[in-house]
Amino acid sequence: MSEPIATVRPEPVEGQQSDSVPHLSFDKLRTNGNQIIRDGAIVRDEWTLIAATHAEPLPAGRVIVPLARWLAERDALTARITEQNQPLGVWLDGHEDPAKLADAIHRFAVIAVNFPKFADGRGYSIATLLRSRYGFKGELRAIGDVLRDQLFYMKRVGFNAFAVRADKDIHDAVKALKDFSEVYQGSVNQPLPLFKRKRVPEIA
């Protein structure tokens, strides 16, 4: 597994907001009725997202911890899964390497990928790798600046859950999953490109 070449964290660009953590504020997520889109339906979210800055002991119940916390407290968190029977989730930021989860990928019920800004596309490659290279089968959730007009692409790279940004209408956003009925290239949710599914010449 190659190490990331660089761990570039976007610096705030002039005129633009700083990113990452603000979108993980619980208040914002809660104000969206505590709902997410999962497998095409709007459902109650039973998970608690743990911010990168959160240093206190973890609350009981279903939590999604930052990658750094998983790496630092791996033994204790593994025990939480295996001994206390508590499902665990982990979240990655755009600059983080999904390879770090490879050896424990099946332990997680949820992996969330943060989109610091909706136009920051690193999460699409992270999701692709989690699904197609590391074989993650659980819930893959987009968090952060998650907006309607990106959901179709997110679905294609393997996300099946979407924590739509708090100030947006989740019932409106869910419609985007059906924006296109056909696609050209292969991706996670349909590995075969169009030319191997439908344009195959008939065998004489």
Binding site: F118, A119, D120, G121, Y124, S125, T128, Q150, F152, Y153, M154, R156, V157, F180, V183, Y184, Q185, S187, P193, L194
Partner: peptide, 14 residues
Amino acid sequence: RQWSTFHPEFAYLP
């Protein structure tokens, strides 16, 4: 052209 049209992984490049 077809491969790149709405390529989901590469719609938001740097």
